[in-house]
């Protein structure tokens, strides 16, 4: 694929507020601005008439978030948290009860915005009679891309998502979910969109596909594409996104900056050489841990589990163990940051 020009990101627009909300007045905000979005789903009329107890579902409640152009934003949360509703509102598929969504200062339903967005839905309900190549070509036509480069663009896109060339001329009805994901991603990338909305892009994809999708997304991010990634795969979000929004009960619970690694307590395991003579005692490890604002949580033969406060305390801990000639073999992170967040939430 050809290079996507990196957008100019105004440094003054980078978010500094705790939950990503920006003070009003930034009218020419380059990026996605979600302002006090609320959305309630009412039960169907038949339910209401039948007097059934199906009540209103508050999907989003006073949800505000700014996504700066060029940023990769992850959206995670439990099932029914409002992630899909948020995605629907961002794309103009749902009509919010109150609040607004602006992309580059325009509502998401306006044609100029539709020209610069790409979308991969979670439910891959594509025209099953179309072949993969015809499907991507169709979307190339729909997005008014130049006819001269159509064939080359389509082939480049199918190659980029790693779809086997033998499958290009098969109807989508015969495709597995993993193959559909790849075709869907190729479709979403038609026209080199500035904003890419992905709903579970690696769901159902084989391990090779997960890596391929991740690589494609990393490349796109490096080229300046703004990515909104809704995924349950914490690992994927952590590897691609700059920030992650935690959604729960229709609200923005927290906003985590994944670029800044020097935050939060976390668990690590330190593995020592399996030599009992050189192995430190439990008391010795506890003393060392305390002196570096850490805590020894468990000693299991030759593996010691620590809870460290931050990056400084981790490096200090390793340094002290090495200085005392203890046979440190490796340091293993016990959970990534997003896993830790969920663990803390559940606790």
């Amino acid at each position: 694929m050809s290079q996507i020009p990196a957008p100019e990101v105004d440094a003054s627009l980078i978010d500094s507020s705790p939950l990503g909300t920006r003070s009003p007045g930034a009218s020419r905000f380059s990026g996605i601005k979600v302002d006090s979005l609320s959305k309630t789903f009412n039960p169907p009329l038949l339910y209401r008439k039948a007097g059934q107890s199906k009540s209103k579902v508050v999907a989003l409640k006073d949800f505000s978030l700014d996504i700066v152009a060029g940023e990769a934003m992850g959206v995670i949360g439990p099932n029914g948290a409002g992630k899909t509703t948020l995605m629907g509102c961002l794309l103009g598929f749902l009509h919010p009860d109150s609040g607004s969504v602006l992309i580059d200062g325009l509502p998401p339903n306006s044609l100029p915005i539709k020209e610069i967005i790409g979308y991969l839905p979670e439910r891959l309900n594509f025209d099953s009679w179309m072949t993969a190549k015809r499907f991507v070509t169709h979307h190339h036509e729909l997005s008014y891309q130049p006819e001269e480069s159509r064939e080359k663009d389509v082939e480049d896109l199918l190659n980029a998502v790693g779809l086997d060339q033998k499958k290009w001329d098969l109807p989508l009805g015969n495709f597995s979910r993993g193959m559909l994901q790849r075709v869907g991603l190729a479709q979403a990338l038609v026209g080199k969109p500035k904003y890419l909305f992905l709903d579970e892009p690696a769901s159902g994809v084989d391990p090779g596909g997960v890596l391929a999708v991740r690589q494609v997304l990393r490349d796109l991010k490096a080229k300046g594409m703004t990515i909104v990634l809704n995924s349950h795969q914490l690992d994927q979000i952590e590897k691609i996104c700059d920030r992650v929004a935690f959604v729960k009960g229709g609200r923005l619970e927290a906003l985590e900056d994944l670029v800044d690694t020097d935050t939060n307590r976390r668990e690590i395991a330190i593995k020592f050489k399996s030599n009992p003579e050189l192995m430190p005692s439990k008391e010795a490890l506890q003393d060392i841990a305390l002196s570096c604002q850490s805590e020894l949580s468990e000693l299991n033969y030759f593996v010691a589990h620590f809870t460290v406060s931050n990056n400084d305390s981790l490096s200090q801990l390793i340094k002290m163990l090495v200085n005392k000639d203890y046979p440190v073999l490796e340091v293993i992170p016990q959970s990534n940051r997003l896993e830790r967040y969920f663990k803390e939430e559940n606790a």
């Binding site: 598929f93 044609l111 539709k114 967005i117 790409g118 309900n125 979307h139 729909l142 997005s143 869907g184």
Partner: peptide, 14 residues
Amino acid sequence: SSGILSVLFARPIR
């Protein structure tokens, strides 16, 4: 019903 429209309406179509 099939959900095809969400992909279609992400394109510049009125």
